[in-house]
C-alpha cells in the first residue's frame, strides 16, 4: 500500500486510524498542510488528490492507496513561488498564515473547476458555465475559513490569478 505525495511514493501507515493529515504531519514532517479543526469544518487541511480538493483531516490515509496527493509543499517550483502564491503575497491575502496553505490549494482546484464549467450554489443558470466573478469565487472559497479576516486580499489574488491563467 503506497501513496504518492508531491511525486514521492510513501508506504501507508499500518494503523488504519491515521488520517492523511496526521500521516503527512506526524509521520512525514510535511507540516505545510494545517490542522484547524480535525473535523471538516475549516478547510485548513485542504490538499489535492488526483487534482481534486479534499480535506486531509477526514481522509483515512488507508483509503487513498495508489492515489496521488499534492500539498502546498508541492506547489512552488524550487525557489520560484507558484503564481498564485506570489499573488497571495502581493495582495496581502494572508495574516497569521495558518489557513493560507489550505486557501491556496483550494484556489488552485477552484481554477480547474471553473475550467470544466462546474456550477456552484450561486450560479444562476446551471446550463451555462459559471463566470468567475467575485461572488462565485467567494462561494467556492467558503469552505476555507480565515479568522484573521484576510478575505479581501485572497479574493483579489484569486481573481487576478484566474484572469491571468484561464
Amino acid at each position: 500500500m503506497t501513496i504518492t505525495i508531491n511525486g514521492q511514493p510513501y508506504d501507508l501507515p499500518t494503523d488504519a486510524r491515521v488520517s492523511l493529515l496526521d500521516f503527512m504531519r506526524e509521520r512525514l514532517d510535511l507540516f505545510g498542510t494545517k490542522k484547524g479543526c480535525n473535523q471538516g469544518a475549516c478547510g485548513a487541511c485542504t490538499v489535492l488528490i488526483d487534482g481534486e480538493r479534499v480535506l486531509a483531516c477526514l481522509a483515512l490515509a488507508a483509503q487513498y492507496d495508489g492515489r496521488s496527493v499534492t500539498t502546498i509543499e508541492g506547489l512552488a517550483d524550487g525557489e520560484d513561488l507558484h503564481p498564485l502564491q506570489a499573488l497571495f503575497v502581493k495582495h496581502d491575502g494572508l495574516q497569521c498564515g495558518y489557513c493560507t496553505p489550505g486557501q491556496i490549494m483550494s484556489a488552485i482546484a477552484l481554477s480547474n473547476e471553473f475550467s470544466r464549467g462546474a456550477p456552484s450554489s450561486v450560479t444562476t443558470d446551471l446550463d451555462v458555465p459559471a463566470t468567475p466573478n467575485r461572488e462565485e469565487i467567494r462561494e467556492r472559497m467558503s469552505g476555507n475559513l480565515c479568522r484573521c479576516g484576510a478575505h479581501n486580499g485572497m479574493i483579489e489574488a484569486i481573481t487576478s490569478y484566474l484572469s491571468e491563467h484561464s
Binding site: 505545510g32 502546498i72 509543499e73 513561488l81 502564491q85 503575497v89 498564515g97 493560507t100
Partner: peptide, 8 residues
Amino acid sequence: GPLKVRGA
C-alpha cells in the same frame, strides 16, 4: 509572506 504561502 513567501514563507507562509509555501507552508514553510
